[in-house]
Design a protein around this nucleic acid. Structure first.
Lengths: 328, 328
DNA sequence: CGCACACCTGAGAGCGCTACCACCACAATC
DNA sequence: GATTGTGGTGGTAGCGCTCTCAGGTGTGCG
């Protein structure tokens, strides 16, 4: 344990630099006028004393808040038990740390979006990151947080969004399947209310209908377990299926597991594709053909956008690129 | 967007309840005296006004800090790019959210542990969660944060720790391998400075030496990629190896990938085991025999312990249990 | 020379909250 | 009746910071 050394305050810095608190504050925040001399002296004082502004005091006077809230919509708190959410939260925490901000996560029930209002009533909330965003949520963002909110998924006139190009990714996958001769292509989807799943499914349907092919859909839930049962269901309903598109890698791996257990060759009899390119996709057998997208970058971009208080509706789309391996 | 409704302050509550700010504060924090009547009136005022205490103001006056810092030791910032870290951060953020606290993550270079002092100089830090803890770090925890620090890994006389029973898990695995007739058991380890890896390796060596068997170790880095090359290396140095213990599931999957590519039967020729029981361990082919431990629970317990300001050195060990599947 | 207008500075008011202290009423004790 | 509690209460001083505002100095211009 280190000895108790009281961290330096702005007063200490001002005294050491021989200026007033106001001037020191101005130099440090970079607002308002300050002579080069004053600037210089304050800077050295800051360095020498190892001054770190007190985030709480700053937030108090500015009414700014002290943490970024990641609000995740879903049917149950279990949405938070997910690698994707973990990555988003963790990336946000990394972005926020140097700014003296923390990150909190909370679940917003899909059937009680008003819960978001309660969560954001707290003055401590400096910014909002909406995940799994559904339309009703966007109208519940308080005016105070306007310009300090970014949505991963759908945005609105006032809320900018950052997103994966799910449609593009799925299209690339389906085209690849088609190009390799598959014509009876089924899909294990995600919950339809989820924008990202919805968009993926739309892309799948669009391409199939363009080719005059019928869609074969089974609703899944992003889990490997559901992938297993879904595979079974698909082969029961449409025994001639020659390709299965998984909504995510976990689902695809579940599908493959079930297929192989039933003696179905992958990709010989049925090609299977994933989505996400999780680290393990390359080491499974067969290695997974999937679409890759930079989740960490997206989360980082989203958190950065919140901190930068960018204004006006913007929509940043991150590409999803096909990764060809062995399963399709 | 919702209309701008100024969040209620303590003054509003006091006025509505017809008591002084002091009394209201006492009721809300639950410290000091308050008559049942006053208590009741303040409570209803809080409910009606939807009052949420301002975390920043509270932190300012109490000198308490406003976020929990997750400090991760490692050789490079890439340690943070890890599912395990993501889970820890995310779990901490979940625990902290209802308390009006945020979570920040920062990397502490293994060769510059003093960086921790800079990070904790910030008054905003309310608590500290040490991950990948190495001994020098424990002495750098500032007195102010004493009793508000928990280490995942090794602890000290002043810093309580929460940990996985790595030794127990690896012992269970090696015993299982031995019981199924394996006698030439190799291991792909993690970086030796990492306590958890160190403990696992110690357990492996201990059991092998008890059985009069030689250890066959290759140093890895927790990655699947390294698992692949390590497998190759092991079979080159000790061609008669009949079992490989992976330090984690990713490594084990890399090992399996390489082995199968080389035409080696798993588990026929060589049994392979993982460690962690990641969600995919059950869907790979062959399904991974591994050890399971509740990472989320551990992180939750650690974060909770930080908030509860528990005192005195305690050591909580979470069990690691063998999960028998097909790979060994 | 006086006035405007830059640039620069410090005093001081609070942000919302807690904690300390003084106080009051009433009861029990000497 | 004077003392000592004891349960309850309100006044108020800050915590560390930002920001407005009222001043200071200079320089350029009419």
């Amino acid at each position: 344990m280190t000895t108790a050394r009281r961290p330096a305050t702005l007063d200490d810095v001002a005294r050491a630099a021989g200026v007033s608190r106001s001037t020191a504050s101005r130099v440090i925040t970079g607002t308002g006028f300050a002579s080069p001399t004053a600037r210089e002296r304050v800077r050295t004082a800051v360095d020498e004393l190892g001054y770190r502004p007190n985030a709480a005091a700053r937030a108090l006077v500015r009414g700014g808040g002290v943490r970024l809230l990641v609000a995740v919509a879903g049917t149950s708190p279990a949405v938070l038990d997910d690698t994707y959410m973990d990555q988003v939260v963790s990336a946000a925490a990394r972005v926020c740390a140097p700014h003296g901000l923390g990150v909190a996560v909370q679940w917003v029930p899909l059937d009680a979006p008003r819960r978001l209002t309660e969560l954001t009533d707290d003055r401590g909330v400096a910014g909002l990151l909406l995940v799994n965003t559904v339309a009703p949520l966007l109208d519940l963002v308080p005016a105070r947080l306007c310009g300090r909110t970014v949505s991963i998924g759908i945005g609105s006139a006032t809320v900018p969004s950052v997103d994966i190009d799910n449609g593009g990714g799925i299209r690339a996958i389906v085209r690849h399947l088609y190009a390799s001769g598959r014509r009876r292509i089924a899909m294990v989807t995600g919950p339809p209310w989820l924008t990202c799943s919805h968009r993926s499914v739309e892309a799948y349907r669009g391409l199939l209908s363009d080719a005059g092919l019928p869609a074969r859909e089974v609703v899944g839930d992003f889990s490997a377990a559901r992938g297993r049962t879904a595979a079974q269901e698909i082969l029961r309903r449409w025994p001639d299926t020659d390709a299965i598109v998984g909504i995510c890698d976990a689902t695809a791996l579940g599908v493959i597991g079930r297929l192989r257990a039933d003696g179905v060759q992958v990709p010989g009899d049925v090609a299977v594709t994933g989505f996400d390119d999780i680290p393990l996709a390359s080491v499974t057998a067969p290695a997974l053909t999937t679409a890759s997208h930079p989740v960490r970058e997206i989360a980082t971009a989203a958190a950065t956008a919140v901190l930068e208080q960018r204004r006006g509706p913007t929509r940043t789309l991150f590409p999803s690129s096909l990764v060809r391996r062995d399963s399709a």
